[in-house]
Computed example of a mutant assay.
Amino acid sequence: MELSTSSSPSSRAGRPSEAAAQVREYLAFQVGKELYGVDILRVQEIRGFETPTRIAGASEVVRGVLNLRGVIVPVLDLRHSMGLPADIGVGTVTIVMNLQQRTVGFVVDGVTDVVGLAPADIQPAPELADGGRGTFIQGLGELKVDGRQQMLILLDADQLLGQLGDSEQALLAVPM
């Protein structure tokens, strides 16, 4: 799968242009048929899927915990968060991120690429039917994927954590 942004920053005499300095990089990944992206600076590592240790009483969003070099990391299933059934496939990975002074893993269907987007390439999140905006959606970027245009839904992972229920928040709050 080949990804490219719809615009490319220019440079003069070998110096990056002002637009190039503002380009931010996002890790693009797939959940179901949609492409999502998170700020690459929040990503600690990408791991092949390992079945986490299940926590008694945790909801289906929380797959369990992993011991990552001595750090216990809660693992959340983004498919479930997006209203899709759990489905572990060949390309399934866990994206380990640093959020809200915590290390958290997110299970996704696969990672596609790292893409750079300038502010001009990002549209604001649309208003939803209830009159609000998806609080965890930062905006929408447009990419070329295998020669066709596709939306990249940019997520604010900190806000995504804020959407969790009380029991999941309690799991994240417990020092591990």
Rank of each mutant, 00 (worst) to 15 (best):
residue 1 M to S: 13
residue 8 S to F: 14
residue 9 P to S: 12
residue 15 R to M: 09
residue 16 P to D: 10
residue 20 A to L: 13
residue 22 Q to E: 15
residue 24 R to A: 13
residue 25 E to V: 03
residue 26 Y to K: 08
residue 27 L to W: 07
residue 28 A to Q: 03
residue 29 F to P: 02
residue 30 Q to H: 12
residue 32 G to D: 10
residue 33 K to V: 10
residue 34 E to T: 12
residue 38 V to S: 07
residue 38 V to M: 14
residue 41 L to A: 11
residue 41 L to W: 02
residue 41 L to F: 11
residue 42 R to I: 04
residue 43 V to D: 06
residue 48 G to E: 12
residue 48 G to S: 13
residue 48 G to Y: 15
residue 51 T to M: 06
residue 53 T to M: 05
residue 53 T to C: 03
residue 54 R to N: 07
residue 55 I to Y: 00
residue 58 A to M: 03
residue 60 E to Q: 15
residue 60 E to S: 15
residue 62 V to L: 08
residue 62 V to H: 04
residue 63 R to K: 08
residue 64 G to Y: 00
residue 65 V to W: 12
residue 66 L to I: 14
residue 67 N to F: 02
residue 71 V to F: 00
residue 72 I to G: 07
residue 75 V to T: 08
residue 75 V to I: 15
residue 77 D to K: 10
residue 80 H to S: 13
residue 81 S to K: 11
residue 81 S to F: 09
residue 83 G to Q: 08
residue 86 A to V: 11
residue 87 D to R: 12
residue 89 G to K: 07
residue 94 T to R: 00
residue 96 V to R: 01
residue 97 M to H: 01
residue 98 N to D: 14
residue 99 L to H: 03
residue 99 L to Y: 04
residue 100 Q to D: 14
residue 101 Q to N: 13
residue 102 R to A: 02
residue 102 R to D: 03
residue 107 V to A: 13
residue 107 V to R: 05
residue 111 V to C: 10
residue 111 V to N: 06
residue 114 V to L: 11
residue 114 V to G: 10
residue 115 V to M: 11
residue 118 A to I: 01
residue 119 P to F: 05
residue 120 A to I: 04
residue 121 D to V: 03
residue 122 I to S: 10
residue 122 I to Q: 07
residue 123 Q to I: 01
residue 123 Q to N: 07
residue 126 P to T: 04
residue 130 D to K: 00
residue 138 Q to C: 05
residue 138 Q to L: 12
residue 143 L to A: 05
residue 146 D to Q: 11
residue 148 R to D: 15
residue 151 M to R: 06
residue 152 L to I: 06
residue 154 L to D: 10
residue 154 L to Q: 07
residue 156 D to I: 04
residue 157 A to N: 01
residue 167 S to V: 09
residue 169 Q to V: 03
residue 174 V to C: 06
